[in-house]
Design a binder for these strands. Structure first.
Length: 544
RNA sequence: GCCCCCAUAGCUCAGGGGAUAGAGCACCGCCCUCCGGAGGCGGGAGCGUAGGUUCGAAUCCUACUGGGGGCGCCA
């Protein structure tokens, strides 16, 4: 099923030879869609735009879809869909198992790297954003027909585990009896001792070597720590209602065995060179290199990310890789991608995108900090939202607030505002859905049937049907641009159109064809809202 | 010092070459004999500054100002 927009685009392109840049009309009096083709063609042809527009209006073959075209303003072409065409397009959504979401022509294997909490560290706001945004991409791309492989790049490797394992052994702690919070507390204690106790610090360093050497007793405790943290992560994921499972775990340790090979490969091929004792890749136009191997022989996260890319393209068959990681990593990923291209780990046929998101700010407009100046935990933020609203509403509020503005911008975490049931919020959308559901429930109780949208006489009905018909193209845009706020805006406009319709067009009090058509409209709104909210990872309860 | 991101209404944000720059919150008016007023309808108020490109700039380019972030062995 192709969208009305793409059908119109095709027709106009056939007549003009250029992309008509069809846009939704900026005002209702301009019809449903508008194009500026005549304005853009006029200069080259040396003719007045309006004259050219008038000629195009005659030549463009859309009589089956639209009312006669109108030329307006400086030379715009305005398209007004025939009422029957609009009704049919909206009606199709109700029957379509994909709810009008156009299926991608060339399905891809897409790896999405998101969430990435650290073992034995509290989940924080960055993890929250990454998890929510990645979950949305996961759902949108899967709905379009791509094969999505989620990769949760947890921080489960590094020198800090030597310290932690040594502390556990030395203090005789029962690691299996810990939970995530307990291991976090332990980590802090270990850190303090590391600073204060020279003998312990030495033992901790030896323990790192034991860990890297695969010492069974060390590995066992390390593994236990991971299990403990996993349980904590899963608790947060269940609360948030995201798709991640243990199958998606692919932490830093997974790539451990590949690091030496990556370094050797880059060195052997002359892509990386030793500088100041470290194995570096120098990129053109950049003075700071990417450090593949440190001068002490250890590997940093650059090596891990290079190995991960190679693994994802070769082993997982990724054709598109999406990293949902905060803004500060922008330069790092630019380097990693560039080196991966050079080395062929990232072939030209595979795209790699870093979706950099901004910070979460407090209501004072500054970076979120606790009173003690520490990082705010994910848990405490969700608690804050659940203090003012029940869980499904609170999660809707948090997610919508996170997804509804441009990802690269910072946003203010204001529990009161985001849980408000008025305005551009998650709960408002849920309310619109519950309202549509209520009408349908009452209609069923009365024994009223509905099937298709057939009558669109009222402006509010038309506006609603038009908005419904755009759902597929919006989802397509989000899949391409990875900008969830466009879906949020769309759904908010749909909910608003629903509310206007609700005020102006009685449903249950209407009769005959009008009633069944309006019921079908309500049913389509319910379906599109529920589907759209689901793509955002937001539940749509029937009652609130 | 170099690089990246951001700047739109009192506040929070859309709009990213095209018609009179749109929403929400807050504020001020209307609208409940009406399917959930958690709503609808209406009102005032704005593109950081200065240049440039263009028939046309909030949008593209340059400089500047202000805010945030990054820049060889932490991830």
């Amino acid at each position: 099923m192709s969208s009305l927009l793409s059908q119109l685009t095709e027709r106009v392109q056939a007549a003009t030879g250029i992309d008509p840049e069809m846009r939704p009309a900026t005002k209702p009096q301009f019809g449903h869609f508008q194009s500026n083709v005549a304005l853009r063609l006029a200069k080259g042809e040396g003719r007045p735009p309006r004259e050219l527009a008038a000629e195009l209006a005659e030549r463009i073959d859309v009589a089956d879809l639209c009312e006669p075209l109108e030329v307006a303003g400086p030379g715009f072409l305005n398209f007004r869909l025939k009422s029957g065409v609009l009704a049919a397009a909206a009606s199709e959504l109700l029957a379509d198992p994909h709810t009008g979401i156009t299926q991608t022509e060339h399905p891809q294997t897409v790896v999405i790297d998101y969430s990435a909490p650290n073992v034995a560290k509290p989940m924080h706001v960055g993890n929250l954003r990454s998890t929510i945004i990645g979950d949305c991409f996961h759902r949108v791309l899967a709905a379009r027909g791509d094969t999505v492989i989620a990769q949760n790049h947890i921080g489960d490797w590094g020198t800090q585990f030597g310290m932690l394992v040594e502390y556990i052994l030395d203090e005789g702690v029962d690691a299996a009896g810990l939970d995530l919070d307990g291991s976090v507390a332990l980590y802090k204690q270990a850190q303090e001792r590391f600073k204060a106790d020279e003998a312990f610090a030495d033992a901790a360093r030896r323990r790192v070597v034991a860990l890297q050497g695969g010492d069974p007793r060390t590995m066992e405790i390390w593994q236990t720590l991971i299990e403990v943290s996993k349980a904590g992560f899963n608790e947060a994921y269940a609360r948030l209602g995201v798709l991640l499972t243990d199958d998606d775990l692919a932490g830093e340790s997974l790539y451990n065995a590949m690091l030496a090979d990556v370094a050797d490969d880059l060195a052997r091929r002359g892509i990386a060179v030793v500088d100041d004792g470290a194995l570096c890749v120098f990129l053109e136009g950049q003075d700071a290199p990417l450090i593949v191997r440190k001068s002490d022989g250890g590997f940093g996260y650059a090596a891990t990310d290079l190995a991960a890319i190679r693994y994802r393209t070769t082993q997982l068959g990724a054709q598109r890789i999406i990293y949902v990681v905060g803004m500060p990593q922008t330069h790092h990923f630019a380097q990693v991608f560039a080196v991966s291209r050079l080395a062929g780990y990232l072939p030209e046929t595979v795209s790699a995108e870093h979706v950099a998101f901004g910070s979460v700010l407090g209501t004072d407009g500054k970076m979120l900090r606790t009173r003690a100046g520490k990082t705010v935990t994910l848990q405490s933020l969700l608690d804050e939202a659940e203090e003012v609203a029940a869980r499904p509403i609170a999660m809707a509020a948090v997610k919508y607030a996170d997804l509804s503005n441009q990802l690269q911008k910072d946003y203010v975490f204001d529990a009161e505002r985001m849980t408000a049931t008025t305005g551009d919020t998650g709960p408002y959308l849920q309310y619109a859905h519950a309202r549509a559901t209520q009408i349908l429930r009452r209609a069923e109780a009365e024994g009223y049937a509905w099937e298709r949208i057939t009558v669109l006489d009222e402006p509010a009905e038309q506006a609603l049907a038009l908005q419904l018909s755009r759902f597929g193209e919006v989802v397509e845009t989000v899949a391409a641009d990875l900008q969830p706020h466009k879906l949020c805006t769309y759904l908010f406009e749909l909910a608003t159109a629903m509310s206007t319709f609700y005020e102006q067009c009685p449903v249950l009090k209407a009769d005959g064809a009008v009633r069944s058509s309006r019921l079908a409209l309500c049913a389509t709104v319910k379906k599109v809202l529920a589907t759209g909210l689901d793509l955002l990872g937001i539940q749509a309860p029937d009652q609130m």
